[in-house]
Every structure is written in structure tokens, then in C-alpha cells.
């Protein structure tokens, strides 16, 4: 067990005095934990933490990791069809980043005592959830632009406050991720800019991609605050710093000048500056669709999972070979030392 991956040692309750000791420890642990949260300090892997805090974090961090891994698929699909060698190299770098982000996050989740394989298996079996945005197809090259600008853009707005999450390893993973995401958003915006300023057909393709991804991107912040039961606890624990609706509003306010600079429009007739609020008003989103996609009825939910399984199955022999090689090397070395 590493220092980062050390689970709190289970207590053996042999008799009553042990039980009392365990109770006292939980009490002092809770006090210390409350202090850390109140001071806006960070909880580290070997600290005592409430079971519900641990569980909630494992769920959030592993879902986040799964989203990065599945998120490689819509874009990976366009690597071989990127319109130029430069665009292709950029897209490969972006997809590689997503894999990296998944691995940072799996590592962070692992420090909470959840074995890596268990997380992989949950994704494999379909038990694990991931961001529903990745169940939408990337139909055209312009969709790759819209994904970078809108999907990665929403992810950034969501993730920047997570850099200050109360759980140390999660916050540190997010710092690394946020540094890398900004290239993703800009490259997406530039794809749309090129298309928007190209031929009439290209301009239209860009507009259609924005039309498709705008609503689902806004839904990435999760359901409205009234329908988001876990949010409040998450905020009390300082894992989350802003509500879903606050972040969504921030995102819309950012998008308006950006879409103007693109020479495109956002597909919302109700979008309007509200002088009084100092924010843009925007129309209702299709939450029935959102919940349907979450339940696994997204356009590509089945295909995403099938592809993940296929990749995992087909790569199994490589992992086995690497293990066999490592075992062989250490055996040879042991024999050499023994000789």
C-alpha cells in the first residue's frame, strides 16, 4: 500500500473496550474532518473521513474518469477522416489527453480505496455511469469543432472550481486536467471559425453542429438545482463550489460573445440579455431527453459500451504478455542471484 493508497485500517472489535476505542476514534476523526472542511483545508487519503464522503467521492471521481475514457470515442472516430495532417495530429493529441485525464482520475479514485479493476469492470458491465453527452454521435467534422468548443467548454466551467475540491488527490488531478483542457476548447473554436468563414455549405455545417450540441452541452452541468438531491451535501463538503444552475448560467454568459465572434448563432429564441440580473436569460432545456439518455437510451449508448468492451477484450493479450514478461524477468533475476 502506498502512502497515497492506504485505506484506514479496519478495527477489530475484540471486546467492549475496543468498541469504545473505535467510537472515540470515529468521534475525534469526525471532529478533525469537520475542522479541515471548515478551514477550507484539504482532506488527504489517509485521513479519517465519513463513509458517506468517501462513497460520494468514489462515485463522482470514477464517473468522471469513465466520462474521459468514453469521451475518446466520438472524436477518435474522426482521426482517420480529419481534413488535414495538422488537424489529424491535433485530434490525436486531444484524444490522448482524454485518456490521460481518465488515468489521473482513476488514480485519484484509487486513493479512496476503490481498486482500479473494480472501476474498469463496472464500466465494462454497464453498471457505471458516465456523462451522457458522449452518447451523442459526431456526425460531421464540424461536430468535432462543436465538441471542443461546447463540450470541453462546459467541462472547463465545471472543472475549474473542482480544482479547489476538498479532497486533495481529486483537486490535484483537476489542476492538471484544467491546464490541458484549454487547448481543447480553443482548437474546437478554431475548427468552427474556419468552417464559418468558408463556403456557404461549410458555414451551414458549422451552424448545424452548434445547433446539435448546444442543448446537450448545457445539460452537462446536471439537472436544475431543484432536482439535484446530492448537490447540497456536495457543497457542504466543499467538493462542489457552485450549483448546477450557477455554472450553467456562467457558461451561457461566456458563450454569447464567443458565438458572435464565430459569426454563428445559438439555437435558442429565448436567449436575451437581462439588464436587471446582469445575465442572459435562456429557454428551458429538454430534460425528458436528458433523463432518457442517462437511463441508457441515448443515440449511441449501446455502441459506446460495445466499443469499450471490444477495445478492452482485444487488448487483453497485450496486458497478459506484459505481465508474463515482467514475471519472467524477475524470475530470471532471482535465479541469477541464487546462482
Amino acid at each position: 500500500m502506498s502512502p497515497e493508497n492506504h485505506q484506514h485500517a479496519p478495527l477489530h472489535l475484540a471486546d467492549e473496550s475496543d468498541a469504545a476505542a473505535a467510537l472515540a476514534e470515529a468521534e475525534s476523526g469526525q471532529n478533525r474532518f469537520d475542522e479541515i472542511i471548515a478551514e477550507d483545508s484539504r482532506v488527504e487519503p489517509r485521513d479519517w473521513m465519513p463513509e458517506s464522503y468517501r462513497k460520494s467521492l468514489v462515485r463522482q471521481v470514477s464517473q468522471h474518469a469513465h466520462s474521459e475514457i468514453i469521451g475518446m470515442q466520438p472524436e477518435g472516430n474522426w482521426i482517420s477522416r480529419a481534413p488535414s495532417l495538422k488537424r489529424k495530429a491535433i485530434l490525436i493529441a486531444k484524444v490522448q489527453d482524454e485518456a490521460g485525464h481518465g488515468l489521473y482520475l482513476y488514480s485519484a479514485a484509487e486513493t479512496l480505496g476503490r481498486p482500479r479493476e473494480e472501476m474498469y469492470d463496472q464500466l465494462y458491465s454497464g453498471k457505471a455511469k458516465y456523462s451522457s453527452i458522449f452518447n451523442y454521435p459526431a456526425r460531421t467534422w464540424a461536430d468535432i469543432g462543436a465538441i471542443g468548443w461546447l463540450v470541453d467548454g462546459a467541462a472547463i466551467v465545471n472543472q475549474v472550481p473542482l480544482c479547489r475540491a476538498s479532497y486533495g488527490p481529486y483537486g490535484r488531478a483537476m489542476v492538471r486536467i484544467c491546464k490541458e483542457e484549454s487547448f481543447h476548447q480553443r482548437q474546437g473554436w478554431e475548427i468552427l471559425y474556419s468552417l464559418s468563414h468558408g463556403t456557404e455549405a461549410q458555414h451551414q455545417m458549422a451552424q448545424e453542429a452548434v445547433n446539435r450540441f448546444y442543448g446537450p452541452a448545457l445539460q452537462m452541468f446536471g439537472p436544475p438545482d431543484g432536482d439535484s438531491p446530492n448537490s447540497q451535501q456536495s457543497m457542504a463538503w466543499k467538493i462542489k463550489r457552485f450549483t448546477n444552475d450557477e455554472l450553467r448560467q456562467r457558461f451561457v454568459d461566456m458563450l454569447v460573445p464567443q458565438v458572435e465572434a464565430l459569426g454563428l448563432t445559438l439555437p435558442d429564441p429565448e436567449l436575451k440579455w437581462n439588464e436587471e440580473r446582469g445575465h442572459y436569460d435562456f429557454g428551458d432545456l429538454d430534460w425528458d431527453e436528458f433523463f432518457a439518455v442517462i437511463k441508457g437510451n441515448g443515440p449511441l449508448s449501446r455502441q459506446r459500451l460495445e466499443h469499450y468492451r471490444k477495445a478492452r477484450d482485444e487488448g487483453a493479450w497485450v496486458r497478459e504478455a506484459a505481465t508474463a514478461y515482467a514475471n519472467r524477468q524477475s524470475q530470471d533475476q532471482a535465479a541469477l542471484i541464487g546462482a
Binding site: 482500479r116 479493476e117 474498469y120 465494462y124 458491465s125 478492452r312 496486458r319 497478459e320 505481465t323
Partner: peptide, 8 residues
């Protein structure tokens, strides 16, 4: 389901 014990 393929055993994933390989990399664990």
C-alpha cells in the same frame, strides 16, 4: 466477460 485480473 474477459478476466481483467491481468492488469490488476
Amino acid at each position: 466477460m474477459t478476466s481483467s485480473a491481468d492488469s490488476s
